[in-house]
Design a protein around this nucleic acid. Structure first.
Lengths: 164, 164
DNA sequence: GGAATAAGTCAACATGGCTGACATAAAGAC
DNA sequence: GTCTTTATGTCAGCCATGTTGACTTATTCC
């Protein structure tokens, strides 16, 4: 306990660095999410529809409750976009066989096709960024983003993401 | 041109990795942006107000046009939140001296105080993630996020971010 | 058989985007 | 010195997407 002075934070934890990191996240997310807007607009869909299509595509057979937990919205909000997607034939609902109260969600062929079209420019953007940054930078990106996720959610997210 | 076969992409560019990167961005942004919600709600403000306060705080004396370009919204949308912030004394507008048509934007003392309160949990979250991930991961995070930004915007963003 | 759960639905409202039309003041062009 | 352009503000209405609250239906669990 000889040295009671608080050491200054290492440079990568200084306030300016943190602020820069925050702004980078804003700009990257802003540009990343705008990629599919033109396609969505041509279907008269919005970003909310895209999120639903994305997660149902990634988790075929997921329940409505699971989707709600991921999106962090109310079932009334979800009902609007999900209903449109079902009525227009992009998503199909089947009864669970274990639990017939559940409605398991699946993309139809049409839904899968739209999902591919929507994600294509985003995958391209990420691929370019990854290629330019190199594999070590990519590892760092993943590590930091995972650390930004609410700790209590981290396990669940990891399991969901890593499932092939 | 002996080998005409296309080589498989290196593992960090495979489709599954790209998808994981996309989902990480979604989850991290979701949790990151929810931090200041409780504070905002206590002022009857929303995330739109936070964005304005953040960027005016970061760029004192910026013009309305510059703010519009960063936020990518219309002036009518901005007018709603900006008007409230000005009327309630969080942001101050001064005439430009070079160009008196411009309204230069500044946080008031009250605005600065709110900005600190709003950003505090976010800075904490980023600081923890950075500390846990280490400086090399942080460098990678920055590299990749910068690469995700629209190339034509990258210079401008960098200049804006790095300005102290 | 009754309580709890998964999902759906209706209504009303808030936030924060949008377009279009128009006003004002100042700057810049000639 | 007028004319055009630019920076900003404002009104009106619409749309997308979030919220709360109340209620229903079907099914499962105890």
């Amino acid at each position: 306990m000889a040295d009671i002075k608080t050491a200054p934070p290492p440079s990568f934890l200084r306030e300016a660095e943190l602020r820069q990191a925050i702004e980078l996240l804003f700009y990257a997310y802003r540009d990343f999410t705008s990629d599919p807007d033109a396609i969505l607009a041509s279907y008269h869909f919005g970003r909310a529809h895209h999120r639903v299509i994305h997660f149902v595509g990634r988790n075929p057979g997921m329940t409505v409750s699971e989707l709600l937990a991921i999106l962090r919205i109310t079932k009334q909000s979800l009902a609007r976009v999900l209903g449109q997607l079902v009525r227009r034939g992009f998503i199909e609902q089947r009864h669970g066989q274990r639990d017939r109260r559940q409605r398991l969600l699946y993309l139809t062929a049409k839904g899968t096709e739209l999902e591919r079209a929507l994600s294509q420019p985003q995958r391209g953007r990420v691929a370019r960024a990854f290629r330019d940054a190199g594999p070590e930078a990519v590892a760092g990106y993943r590590k930091v983003l995972l650390g930004l996720i609410e700790p209590s959610e981290r396990e669940k997210v990891l399991r969901s993401i890593l499932r092939e």
